[in-house]
Design a protein around this nucleic acid. Sequence first.
DNA 1: CACGTCATGTCAATCGTTTTCGATAACGTT
DNA 2: AACGTTATCGAAAACGATTGACATGACGTG
Lengths: 400, 400
Amino acid sequence: MSIVFDNVFEILSENVIENLLITGHKSTNTTVFADLCATVSRVMTPETQHHVNATAGQFPTSAEKPAEGRVTINDVARVAKVSVSTVSKVVNGRYGVAPRTITRVHQVINELGYETSLVASSMRNSQTNIIGILVAEFEPFALELLNGISATLRGTKYDLMAYAGNLSPEGHVGWERRSLSRLGGTLIDGAIIVTPTVEIPHSSVPVVAIDPQAGTDMPNTVDVDNSGGAYTATKHLIDLGHQRIGHIRGRDDLNSAHLREEGYRRALDEAGIKFDEQLIHAGDYQWDTATQAAEQLLALPVPPTAIFAANDISALAALEVASARGLAVPQELSIIGFDDIPAAAQSAPALSTVRQPLHEMGSHAVSMLLALLQGEEVTEPHQLPAVLVPRDTTAAPPQS
Amino acid sequence: MSIVFDNVFEILSENVIENLLITGHKSTNTTVFADLCATVSRVMTPETQHHVNATAGQFPTSAEKPAEGRVTINDVARVAKVSVSTVSKVVNGRYGVAPRTITRVHQVINELGYETSLVASSMRNSQTNIIGILVAEFEPFALELLNGISATLRGTKYDLMAYAGNLSPEGHVGWERRSLSRLGGTLIDGAIIVTPTVEIPHSSVPVVAIDPQAGTDMPNTVDVDNSGGAYTATKHLIDLGHQRIGHIRGRDDLNSAHLREEGYRRALDEAGIKFDEQLIHAGDYQWDTATQAAEQLLALPVPPTAIFAANDISALAALEVASARGLAVPQELSIIGFDDIPAAAQSAPALSTVRQPLHEMGSHAVSMLLALLQGEEVTEPHQLPAVLVPRDTTAAPPQS
DNA sequence: CACGTCATGTCAATCGTTTTCGATAACGTT
DNA sequence: AACGTTATCGAAAACGATTGACATGACGTG
């Protein structure tokens, strides 16, 4: 009996049903239930619910303990007068529950505001329904990826856990490996790593890499077609009539830089333009280095009529150099970048570039990971095309 | 059998024999061997077998399924010949374990590569050690916050889970409420909400808000001193000698916009400059509206000599309007913004502004939440000062 | 010698959920 | 009437870690 009184739900339902029966209410189960629900809902308004919980628990001083006592599957079972197994079956849509019972349980679930505890079910199924995303740092590049990933994850059963590896005090080498070993197997079911610079360690969970910069042979990767994008950009300049096209390189230790240079050379090759070593200058995707490169390029005895910069930052730097030198863009010099960062659209003149479909890349990475999590094999890396975004910094070369 | 013995023996023999001896097993060699074999076979259950193999590094045959079978506390206990309770005590540094046992258990833990399952312990302690951050969308503003939050969280026991609420198909009203109810109490121990536009619902977990835009009376918030920052910006212009200072407002439904206008007015007041209604134009923090506002401002019979825009986007828009009108900045018109977004530093000329210390704000939010999680009371909202970043768009007004 | 103390470890219950397996009753079939 | 079939539901065992209560033995003390 004491157990009965331990719980308010029990008291309520017992009494209600008892009363109904005693008063000659020979009704079906559903009717009894309707009355029960009415009673319960009258008592279980948000204000009183709190009070009830607090009273049932240990702490009458409820000020500091705002919400002890989640509604568990047991509470639902008790109120609905079924076993927890049945409730679980209803929640998970398993076979073998009478329609009438299903609706009743659903009603109680709504009434009580029950939500399944991810922790408990994670433990039972030994999977957490969380996927992790590892970035070196939260920077603009990662931003749209996050949006894409987050949007694609919505509607699945998975949640997103974000890690920035670079900020660790131990320095930022091999953050991928460290984070992955800490998380894998205990906290996340799978991981997406953004711009890893080292080979991904094989971990205990599926991993897909976005824009990997190390070995080209990883199986599960998503990236933009760097070479093709560079080709597109260069081709765009060639189509406009340019013959002398300079290039500002990217960071030498990153794969993407090499691929972009390769695409640039391929476009020149294909157009039968002979390659001039002088027209390529080193850069590192950063503003200052690109500024120097642009200056050297424009100081050439026969300067290029167009510049393909390996990324937008470099292109914007080149743009500034040109305007400092009094060169009219695009009339006297065409400039095209790579990435389509937000600032590209707002420069004056607006920068022509090729766009990395970051949102889609994030989305694809999720799809790939989801497939992996279901045991499917993903064989080939996924490459998305870079699309040309012609704006105001590219035009036909000056007639000379 | 011999192969099994060879491999496993190297790993386990020391411990096992030591254990057998310690536990007073005064048996003959053969008996020791029998016991050893028994222990080994117990250890070599399907779950653990794989890991042992991996540790031995001899059998790449099963390399494709690395994830099966985590090492649990039971495995450790079995190998170390103690109970799971003892292992738990060792892991958590509880009192009551003999030094010798401690080292032994630690040795086994390293041997087996055991890591405690956050899921299981979360369930027992009914806390997950995960804090959630809710943003409407991953945008530049949230970026530095994320970095600050992530950096501060590192070194604590907490992990970061990120949610973008805005991308939901149901439209983006009240995402804060929905997300919070779904997560609170089941998945996260506390939450940080970025730029909530509605009153935060009291949830089952502690919540702190960054840059709240609704009611000003929320207890746990972190934001920049909007009013003070606007005051600083305006004062900067006044100190330079400006008397006729225009203002482009922010989004009318956001608190920050009003506070910034208030700071602007306060600075004028204090300097004894009479307030001119014509000099304030509506904006909404966006480019297009700000462009219109700037145009109207500059089309005035007596145009302002300086403009304080409620955010950097608006200021940059004003900058473009000015240059389109052939107005030299800062010689003929001074412009100052608010926020110090990355683009502000790269405009030409570089935009003067007041900086929101986003990194610090994120950091403070974490500290506050951590305090809340330990049951401490946080009484007053935390405001961080905005710092003046004078660059190239502000100067003394033209002599006229 | 009986007793208390202390150090060390083990037992068993617990958290909330899922799932297997068996129980029960209703029903149709010979 | 005896039997097999379904349909429906509940009891109980996991999942892995934590913890308070209890067991054991060694030791010192009155």
